[in-house]
Simulated assay, not measured.
Amino acid sequence: MMRHFFSHKTTLPGLGLAGIALMGLALLSGCDTLFGEPEENVLTKIEDAVWQATAPDIGVIVGVRANAEGRTNPAGPAQAKQKVPFAVRFTVNDEYQFIRWQAFQGGVLLAADQAVFENPAAAETWLSIQGTGNSFTVQPLTLARPRVDTTNLPQGGSLRVALNYPVRIYFAGPLAPDSLILEETGKPNFTNISITGKLSYGQGADVDLTDRFSAALGENDSFLVLTPLPDNPLPGNCNVTVTLGADIQSIHTIDGETYRIPLLKPVTLNYGVHDRAD
């Protein structure tokens, strides 16, 4: 019989094995209720309490794959018994998104009926391990959020680029194309990106420059190119601000499942153009 205990994690009040035995005698003597509960419920609790008192210890280590992902509680070796639930909690760092809990034995991923999580997609949940041994590992599965690694924009605010300078933005991994590029033709051909300018070296009026660029994703969908349109050039000596919206997503495939992870928050990039094209 597989014991998960998730329907009744509470224990019977103040009872050791002797108390459990006395309750069993009371039930055998013909009592229909005990502690105000139906006999069937109490019998189930007795059975579970006996198992929890006698279940074999198992060796479990709870932790993250990399410290940058966040922290677990417990962290490291945990006290656990076979088929007896224990609580696990994960606090994820901003740069990652929590997906679900996983459990392994000897490096092999355990099936759902061998590592029974009350809710594997919850950061705080209960786990009941069905097997025995000392080589269990419990880890949260996380995926890194999209992150801008670098750009081809000049460092510092004094150097300006040509009016037709293509902006290249390199990400840490592949992006979901439909979170950036629109299928239909038109101007602009992208979404979740805004481009604004400030005239006269940043001292003049604000202007919307979004429709003066086209966008394309480069190799492996891991970098974005924003190219000024030749038929609608940028105003000269303008300060340009590119804002990548938080709905831009990276895309990951794990065990045949696809996950889309958004930026944590908008990313803003600034540069200046002079009054000539190359």
Rank of each mutant, 00 (worst) to 15 (best):
G59E: 06
T72I: 08
Q114N: 13
D231Q: 10
P166L: 00
L143M: 11
T11Q: 07
P140K: 00
V207H: 02
V84Y: 03
S214W: 14
G173Q: 14
Y165E: 00
L224R: 04
E95P: 15
A66G: 01
M23S: 08
R168K: 06
V50E: 03
N220T: 08
P120H: 02
G76Y: 05
I58W: 02
S200Y: 04
Q82R: 14
D275H: 13
T253G: 03
D206K: 07
V62P: 15
P85T: 10
P38N: 02
P146W: 06
L182A: 13
Q155F: 06
P174S: 06
L28N: 07
E124D: 15
L28M: 12
A18P: 15
S250A: 13
W101D: 02
G59K: 03
S179R: 04
G131W: 06
T33P: 07
T241R: 08
L153V: 12
I193C: 08
Q139K: 15
I129N: 01
R3S: 02
V225I: 14
K265C: 02
I61D: 13
G24H: 06
C238H: 02
L153N: 05
P228T: 02
D211I: 02
L163I: 07
A121Y: 13
A216H: 04
L263G: 06
A215N: 08
P38Y: 00
V62K: 05
N119R: 12
W51C: 01
I248N: 01
T44H: 11
T243E: 14
A53K: 11
M23T: 10
A68C: 07
D206Y: 10
W101E: 04
Y201H: 11
L244R: 04
A277D: 12
G272E: 04
P38C: 01
P230S: 10
G218Q: 05
S29Y: 10
V242Q: 01
F104H: 10
L264H: 12
S200L: 12
L209G: 01
N67K: 08
C31S: 09
R89A: 15
Q52G: 10
N232F: 08
N220M: 07
R71F: 07
R168Y: 11
N189Q: 05
Y96E: 01
G19C: 04
K265D: 13
N232S: 10
D178P: 14
P77A: 07
T91E: 14
L229K: 09
F6I: 03
D278C: 13
